[in-house]
Structure formats: structure tokens, C-alpha cells
Amino acid sequence: MWNFPLHPPADTPLATRVDHLFYTWLGLAGVVTIAVFFLIVYFSVKYRHGSKADRAMPTGAELRRESHRIEFAWIATPLVIFLGMGFWAADLYYVHASPVANATEVYAVGKQWMWKIEHIGGQREIDELHVPAGRPIKLIMTSQDVIHSFFMPAFRIKQDVLPGRYTILWFTAEHPGDYHLFCTQYCGTDHARMIGHVVVMAPADFQKWLTGGNAQQSMAEEGAGRFRQYGCSGCHGANASVHAPKLEGLFGRRVQLSDGTSVIADERYIHDSVMLPRSQVVAGYAPIMPSFQGQIAEEDLLDIIEYIKSLRDANPGLVK
């Protein structure tokens, strides 16, 4: 019954490296703190009022020279150490911020007060994230409402999840296990209940889980349905009479906008095209697309985005 850990489990290569950084800092901080405490106590005893300790001090120029030397030492030493540690930490941060290219993508939507997860194959889960061990996973996250934060202490990573943006978190879990998932950005009443599990599974088990899951169709297929359901195809479809841009091959392409600027069509761009169509109007088109703000849930929009991504290499005119 004695459940009293003093150290969290570490289950990714990055987590282990972060631990090294932490314990190095702990050592340095420990030495400095103990030294300061020791000196305070030592001086307090030795130079307490009435003690017979020798109190002769250098004076004048000698004192000044002496104290300059000391001061220089305790400015330069910490500076060098701090910057060294800082670069080490920045290097790890860069690793944390740069997902590897072959990572499996998983989508997450934060919503007061739950996490909705969707796998590319269409499997959906709530407050649970199943991942295979040993394979890099890239989470693409957004929020339906306020800012949340996706925190997995065993992997030593977290990232705020913002409405209107897609933020990214990646990791390679090493061992099967069940780990905490917390929301760490205060998000209202049940913030403390916005927690769940990350379940790391052996690859074979994970495969079984995927096929035994609740998926009827993949995210892209789901998205194709939504694309018709919300009437997008009425304007963007092959047979539409409205003058609207075709979405085949859009994803990842540079788009010319009517105010003279241009942007790369990424998830954020498609999101904004749907939610805030007036903010970025494609050059050569009238701003007639209605805003779907408040009508499309973020997770449905993710399906649509995945669908538009799947049209990346499709031939124009394929959209039904």
C-alpha cells in the first residue's frame, strides 16, 4: 500500500537525457546552496559577537584589489557555468521541438474537460492514448475552446494546446506501460479531471488494438463524408457551379492571397480558411465562403484536413 515515489518513471530517450540535465543541475545547485549555508553558519559561529577570532582586514587599495579579484571570480564562474548548462538545455529543447520525419501522426483535441484522440486509421479514444513502443509518434494537437496543455511526465514533455492553432509533441516510448497524462494549463472547473493515461503497447499488441478498435473508416474517409455533409463539395466539388478553388494538391503548396502576400497551405491555413475565411482570401476569388465557426467541431475539421491532405497527390476533378 506504500505508494510513495520520489522520482517519476522515464520512458523515452529524451526523458533520460532530461534527467541527466536535472541531476547535473541538482548537483551544482546543491554545491552552491550548501556552500552558502555552510559559510553563513561558519561565519556566524566564528565571528559571533564576542568571539576571539582574528578580524584584521586589509584596508585601502589592497582591500579594493582583493575584493575586485574575488568579485570577478564569482561573476565569471557562474556566467560560464550558466551558459554551458543553458546550451545543453537548449540543445535538448531543440530535439524536443523537432519531430523526426517518419513519425506516426496522431491527432488530439483538448476540450473542457477531456482529451479526444484520433488515429489516422480512424480509431477514436477519450482520455487515453494508445501508442506502440519503439516507434516515433507525433501528436498534432488543437483545442476546441481554451488553452490546455498535454503533459506526459514519464516522457518529460508537455506542450500547450491552443485554440486556432496546431501544436506538436513527439516522442518514442520505449517500454510497454501505463503512464500519466495531465492537462497542465488551467482550463476551468474540472481542470484537475482532465487527466488520462498513455498506454504504451508492444507493437504486435498495438496492431491488435488498432484492428479491434472502433474504427469504421479512416480519418480521410471520415473527412470526405464531412466534406459533403457540411456542403463544402457544393462549392469546391468537381461539378460545383460556384467559382471556388480546387483543393486537390493544395496541401503543402504556396498559395497566393488577394492582399498580395502568400502562405504555405498547412493545417493552420486550412483551419483558418474554414473558421476565419475573411482573414485569408485566395487571389482571384470572391470572398463568398461562409465562416464555419461554431458549426464544425475541431475533431471533424481534423478529419476534413486529413481528407484534404489525402488529395495532395490526387488529380484535379477527383472531388465528388
Binding site: 540543445d91 535538448l92 514533455i157
Partner: peptide, 13 residues
């Protein structure tokens, strides 16, 4: 500790 980027990712909030 908190100014150290990678560590702050874990310790923040």
C-alpha cells in the same frame, strides 16, 4: 532549473 529550456518543458506548470 526553470530557465533551462528542456527542463522547463517538464517542470513548467
Amino acid at each position: 532549473f526553470l530557465a533551462s529550456l528542456a527542463l522547463d518543458v517538464h517542470l513548467h506548470d
